[in-house]
């Protein structure tokens, strides 16, 4: 009973956030509020970790390489209201759930092999 009650409080999933898998290259569109203005900020990178399973606190971490080869990682709550939508640009063949090894790699070594998926 307890679990059913708790699960009922997990927010509904944003329909614009598809199922994500580690290795996906994604564009995360997030609403940013600056004073009175609101704008959309896009963060594009590779999903290197998904945490929290089916809990309300589930999140995913996106890594991209910024200027000067500096790695930038952002973690978004899966049920965040500020994330407008997530586009999956590319899926990759990966052999583990957490791609933390990408942090130690640069350039060619940090490539992931693309996995073609049949669109539904």
């Amino acid at each position: 009973m307890t679990n059913a009650l708790m699960n009922s409080l997990i927010p509904e999933r944003n329909p614009n956030v598809p199922e994500l898998e580690p290795g996906d290259t994604v564009r995360v569109h997030q609403r940013i509020r600056e004073g009175r203005n609101e704008r959309i900020q896009v963060f594009q990178g590779v999903v290197i970790a998904i945490r929290g399973g089916r809990t309300a606190g589930a999140s995913y971490t996106v890594r991209r390489t910024g200027a000067d080869g500096v790695g930038v990682e952002r973690t978004f709550p899966l049920y965040s209201k500020t994330v407008e939508k997530v586009e999956v640009l590319r899926k990759a063949k990966v052999r583990r759930a957490k791609l933390y090894y990408l942090r130690e790699r640069q350039g060619k070594a940090a490539r992931l092999k693309e996995r073609r998926v049949v669109k539904r």
């Binding site: 708790m6 809990t55 309300a56 049920y79 209201k81 500020t82």
Partner: peptide, 19 residues
């Protein structure tokens, strides 16, 4: 007490709550 979880407020901030 049922348990703890988290909710979002209007600004999208995470709020830790006890149900």
């Amino acid at each position: 007490k049922v348990g703890m979880t988290q909710l979002f407020d209007e600004q999208g901030n995470v709020v830790p709550v006890t149900v």
